[in-house]
């Protein structure tokens, strides 16, 4: 395998007015990621992006986003209707070909334009599930209930995860929610879908993120402390929630094994656990003990720009190595109902 590193990362919290077009959210982010990388824009070998036209509310909306890269003369690029973490995986595969050394990855999402509880039904099977319009919070709640029933964890345990995440988010300027709370005050809120309360669910956030990948020694020349992608894997569980044990995540476990999580100690894990209970399922699946610092950014519970969330987890993991001096960090992204798809990425310092 060719060694590929992340050398820069940039992220933007969406404007609360919501009037800025998605492409204008991306322009400053893409420019900053490129500038920090030291790679001239015209020399980037491959561009890969993630966004979702159903979130934007316009067919082929992703084509407009490409303008943020200055795609003239034509560039080599690809787009996924998925979280940008999968765009990063595609770019990593593309760099393995060996004919190019650099890639730009970006993602953007503005779920605030629509009702996610309806729009996300479109990711479900159209015959058995979609006709019932089971919203994503209710499906997550079925998973949370299954977890609590199997493990004996309580709603207070879930609230404690939220308390820790919101406290961690105090130092994250991109967080939508942060602050000091106590579990007992959170637990006074009513259920949205039992056993989940509003605090157990992610906020609706708009946002964008971009990063630059560089292969081989050139990454060391360009970046003081690049984050090397030493393992990356993506696995999928059966889609229909009734055919699997929702309290566990075999796909996350497999992705972790194939990404080589267990080959060394993990200092920090940035998990795309958008719901509080998902952190418990993922910790178990990935074998993360109490010694692992989970989501020092506050994670997706505090800011969840759909389809950029996973790429931001990888960006936060990059920061841990590049800025915080960590040696080995895990990043995770998820897609689909009830953690159906999971991507695990292991980043290491030199």
């Amino acid at each position: 395998m060719r060694d590929v590193a992340i050398v820069s990362f940039s992220q933007l919290r969406g404007d609360p007015e919501g009037g800025v077009p998605e492409v204008l959210m991306l322009v400053p982010v893409v420019l900053e990621a490129i500038e920090k990388s030291g790679v001239p824009r015209k020399q980037i070998g491959f561009t890969c992006s993630g966004s979702c036209d159903y979130l934007t509310g316009a067919p082929f909306a992703f084509v407009q986003n490409l303008a943020a890269t200055g795609a003239w003369p034509p560039i080599s690029e690809s787009h996924l209707e998925m979280d940008g973490a999968w765009a990063l995986q595609e770019a990593w595969v593309r760099l393995q070909h060996g004919d190019i050394d650099t890639a730009l990855v970006f993602a953007s999402g503005r779920p605030s334009n629509s009702d996610l509880r309806e729009v996300l039904c479109l990711q479900l099977d159209p015959y058995y599930l979609m006709p019932l319009w089971p919203d994503y919070i209710s499906l997550a709640a079925l998973q949370a209930q299954a977890l609590l029933a199997r493990t004996g964890h309580t709603e207070k345990d879930l609230a404690e995860i939220v308390v820790r995440a919101r406290r961690a988010a105090l130092s994250n300027p991109n967080a939508e929610i942060s602050g000091e709370f106590t579990a007992s005050e959170l637990l006074q809120a009513p259920y949205v879908s039992s056993p989940l309360r509003a605090h157990d669910c992610p906020p609706i956030s708009d946002g964008a993120a971009a990063m630059v990948l560089v292969a081989g020694d050139r990454a060391r020349d360009l970046c003081e402390r690049p984050a090397w992608i030493r393992g990356i894997d993506h696995r999928i569980d059966a889609q229909y929630p009734g055919v699997r044990d929702l309290s566990v995540s075999p796909s996350a476990r497999l992705a972790g094994e194939h990404a080589g999580v267990g080959r060394g100690p993990v200092e920090v894990a940035e998990l795309a656990a958008a719901f509080s209970h998902e952190e418990l399922i993922l910790r178990e699946a990935l074998g993360l003990g109490d010694e692992v610092l989970v989501n020092p950014s506050g994670g997706a519970l505090c800011s969840n720009p759909m389809v950029a969330t996973g790429l931001i987890r990888i960006g936060e993991a990059f920061r841990q190595i590049h800025e915080q001096g960590r040696e080995r960090v895990l990043a995770h992204a998820s897609s689909g109902p009830c953690l159906q798809q999971n991507l695990v990425c292991v980043l290491e310092a030199d």
Partner: peptide, 16 residues
């Protein structure tokens, strides 16, 4: 099977 997907989106104008 007939399937009607009907979704409502906010129309927020860009300042430009």
């Amino acid at each position: 099977m007939q399937q009607m997907v009907s979704l409502e989106y906010k129309l927020r104008a860009s300042p430009v």
